[in-house]
């Protein structure tokens, strides 16, 4: 409150429209507002113009981008200097902050490594009260690596394998992987083999979860020989957990909504559907059947939150997690995301 540059009397007047216990008239309000209004560049001919009412003073004030009365050279110069100073100071600050954060992430990463053992991961997520049923991640296909060692398709596949293994270890049944270009969709069988291999290195051959890799509009790929449950040597039947990996791309976002609209328009032209029949439930049903359901948690491994074309419809209540300034896939982001999700409270509209 204190820092907005108004006096006590003015504050009261703005809030309540009262000065010394008297209700203000429109004229008085105008007087009150005068010092706050940016001067009028175009028509100054309306001094009788109504002022703001006490509660909306800033409404009008803010609505303006009106230039200053005279943008004097001194003022402009001052602004430029100040802008330079601010940008400079902040850029140093941002760099230091990034360095510090990266350092602390690295330290934590070393201290709390998962050692490729599902048990460690299970232990890590044990304290998390609720786990997402559908986890989603955004990955990037970069052509050049910035000393991350994850460039190109190979790096991407490697990231997918690791995340899949963590997800399976944590016991989350559905993982959707968004990558803008959709390059992974071209290599579904190969990707399946790679993830399977990695799961094997985590779980061992016998405990390895079964795996399905699929992409929207294609048949899901789960090769034979991966029964969901099989008798163990002891005779007891343990059902192995199952992991579904769903590959999403930019095409599953806006383009799919456009496809849906085209289909609906064609149907409407033939008279197969009435306008009233198109509603949120229909759109939702179509999109969750053909593309993906709403993920509970979306994990970004990028330094800032930019969604890069992630399917919009599905993002409604998704918890979005990112570690500021983090770059590249690592286990700490994954773990922190799950922990944060465990604490989040879900209130729709409340």
């Amino acid at each position: 409150m204190a820092a907005i540059g108004i006096t006590k009397r003015e504050e009261l007047a703005f809030r309540r429209g009262v000065i010394n216990g008297k209700q203000l008239t429109a004229k008085e309000r105008e007087e009150l507002m005068k010092p706050f209004l940016p001067l009028e560049p175009i028509k100054t001919s309306a001094p009788s113009a109504l002022s703001q009412s006490p509660k909306s003073p800033k409404l009008t004030q803010r609505t303006t981008s009106a230039p200053k009365p005279k943008p004097t050279p001194i003022r402009t110069f001052l602004h430029i200097v100040l802008h330079t100073v601010i940008s400079f100071v902040f850029s140093i600050f941002f760099r230091f902050r990034r360095a510090w954060r990266l350092f602390s992430y690295k330290v934590r990463g070393v201290l709390r490594h998962h050692h490729h053992t599902p048990e460690w991961i299970v232990n890590d997520v044990k304290s998390v009260e609720q786990l997402p049923k559908h986890l989603s991640v955004i990955l990037e296909h970069r052509e050049d690596d910035e000393d991350q060692g994850n460039a190109g398709l190979e790096g991407l596949v490697q990231d997918v394998c690791e995340i899949a293994a963590w997800t399976a270890s944590a016991g989350i049944p559905l993982l959707s992987i968004y990558e803008r270009t959709g390059v992974l969709k071209n290599y579904v069988p190969a990707l399946h083999a790679a993830i399977q291999n990695n799961l094997e290195s985590y779980f061992g051959t016998r405990r390895r979860p079964t795996l399905t890799v699929k992409a929207p509009h294609t048949i899901s790929y789960s090769p034979p020989g991966t029964p969901s449950s099989e008798p163990t040597e002891n005779g007891s039947t343990t059902s192995r957990p199952h992991l579904t990996v769903l590959l999403l791309s930019e095409h599953d976002g806006r383009d799919t909504l456009v496809d849906l609209t085209v289909t609906l328009a064609t149907m409407a032209q033939k008279g197969d559907i009435r306008k009233e029949q198109i509603d949120m439930n229909l759109v939702n049903a179509e999109l969750s059947d053909y593309v993906s359901s709403e993920p509970d948690l979306l994990v970004l491994f990028s330094p800032t939150v930019v969604l890069k074309g992630y399917p919009p419809w599905q993002l409604r209540l998704t918890e979005i997690f990112h570690l500021p300034d983090n770059k590249g896939v690592n286990y700490q982001v994954f773990l922190k995301a799950l922990k944060k999700f465990g604490k989040a409270e879900f209130r729709v509209g409340k």
């Binding site: 209004l37 309306a46 113009a49 409404l59 004030q61 803010r62």
Partner: peptide, 19 residues
Amino acid sequence: KLKLGQLAEHGALLDRYGA
């Protein structure tokens, strides 16, 4: 309702601000 109503009372000023 109140805020929008107050806003509408001061149309002339709003024009000045151009939003």
